[in-house]
């Protein structure tokens, strides 16, 4: 009997146990679990699961970074400046500094309006960028952050990588099923990490960032 772990939330599918609550009898082999089965915790698809191997040490890619001159601030795009200001606004609100929060918010809105011109595209373009993040962006960033022992950066990368996987898995499913994917279902986003949940039974805590679910907001159809 083998075990498979959800790469997003860590839920373990154990062939010996199955998933009786969803009609998967104990002893059901992974390949016999229907393709439309989803992770009971976070809604991820079968493709997002990986087999637990006793010895699953993968070869670590070589780290080769060209040190560039630090000039990062002036290299921020308007979109990034907007995201920075909107996060600083939240940081002020957490300290109940409401005037500062409002001012940062105004800056965020200003730069967002200036950056939105560049945005034409389709869902396909979003998933292409997401795939690229997963294939190279996160791989590279994880190595660099580990090399610098940057705890906070590693944390952000772990959350972001999981959320990116979920978004891409949703985009893949939407491509196949179109609007039926969301038919009679509610759609939620975690206010903290961006985790997206499709379904009716919200997990108690966000499977990615572990915040209690009162901070996971439903996005209604308009």
């Amino acid at each position: 009997m083998r075990k498979y772990t959800c790469s997003i939330c860590g839920y373990v599918y154990d062939e010996a146990i199955g998933d009786p609550a969803r009609g998967i009898a104990p002893g059901t082999k992974w390949e016999d679990v229907p393709e439309d089965w989803h992770c009971p915790l976070c809604g991820a698809t079968k493709a997002d699961f990986a087999e637990d191997k006793i010895n699953n040490k993968s070869a670590t890619p070589e780290l080769s970074i060209v040190e560039n001159e630090a000039n990062s601030m002036s290299e921020l795009s308007f979109g990034e400046v907007s995201a920075l200001c909107s996060n600083l606004s939240k940081g002020c609100a957490k300290q109940y500094r409401l005037e500062e929060a409002e001012l940062f918010n105004q800056l965020a809105e200003f730069y967002k309006a200036k950056s939105s011109i560049a945005g034409a595209g389709q869902l396909k373009d979003i998933s292409t960028l997401g795939e690229r993040d997963l294939a190279s962006g996160y791989v590279q960033a994880n190595l660099i952050a580990a090399d610098a022992s940057d705890r906070g950066a590693l944390r952000a990368l772990v959350w972001g990588e999981k959320v990116t996987r979920i978004l891409n898995s949703i985009l893949r499913r939407y491509e196949k099923q179109q609007d039926t994917l969301l038919e009679n279902k509610h759609l939620y986003v975690c206010d903290i990490c961006g985790f997206v949940y499709i379904g009716d039974k919200l997990p108690d805590i966000c499977p990615v960032c572990k915040v209690p679910n009162e901070k996971i907001t439903e996005i209604k159809r308009r």
């Binding site: 990062s72 921020l76 979109g79 990034e80 995201a83 920075l84 909107s86 996060n87 939240k90 940081g91 940057d150 906070g152 950066a153 944390r155 952000a156 959350w159 972001g160 959320v163 990116t164 978004l167 986003v189 975690c190 206010d191 903290i192 990490c193 961006g194 985790f195 997206v196 996005i219």
Partner: peptide
């Protein structure tokens, strides 16, 4: 919303 939150988090950690 989700991508904006991820962008915010990455920038904040930089």
């Amino acid at each position: 919303i989700s991508n904006q939150l991820m962008a915010e988090d990455l920038i904040r950690e930089s």
